[in-house]
Amino acid sequence: MSLPDPLQHLIGDKLDREMNWKSRCHRLNGYLPATCSSPVFIKREDELNANAVGTKHRKYLSLLPTLEHNGNDRIILIGSAHSNNVMGLAQLLRSRGMDVSVLIKAPGNSRLMGNHLLLTMLLPPDRIEYISHREWPQVMEIADQRVAELNKRGVSATVIAEGGYNEAVLPGILTLAADLHRNIGELGIDFTDIWSDSGTGVSAIGLLLGMRLLGLSEPRVHITLIAGSPDEFQHRYQQFAQWLTKLMQQPLPPRCPEVRFMQPASAASYGSINKTILSESWAIARQTGLLMDPVYSVKHFYTVKCAMERQAPTGPQLILYNGGTLAMCGFQSALASQQPIV
Rank of each mutant, 00 (worst) to 15 (best):
A34D: 13
I104M: 14
L174D: 09
L89T: 11
I341V: 11
Y270N: 10
Q339E: 08
G71C: 08
R17W: 01
I76S: 00
I128Y: 05
H9Y: 07
A265G: 10
N274K: 06
E45T: 09
L214N: 14
D73N: 11
A81I: 02
P39S: 11
L174W: 00
D46H: 05
S156E: 09
I194C: 13
S2W: 01
S83T: 06
V295H: 05
N70M: 09
D46R: 07
A161Y: 04
G97C: 11
Q311N: 11
L187I: 10
G330V: 06
L118E: 03
P219E: 10
E218G: 12
D231P: 00
G88I: 08
L213W: 04
G330C: 02
Q145D: 12
A178R: 01
I184K: 12
N85L: 01
Q339N: 10
G71M: 04
P257R: 08
L176D: 09
P137K: 00
E309L: 15
E47K: 06
M211I: 05
L180P: 04
H300Q: 14
I173R: 07
L123N: 10
R310M: 12
K275M: 13
W136S: 02
C256M: 15
H116K: 06
G12Y: 07
V202I: 13
A148V: 05
Q91R: 15
P4A: 10
Y60H: 15
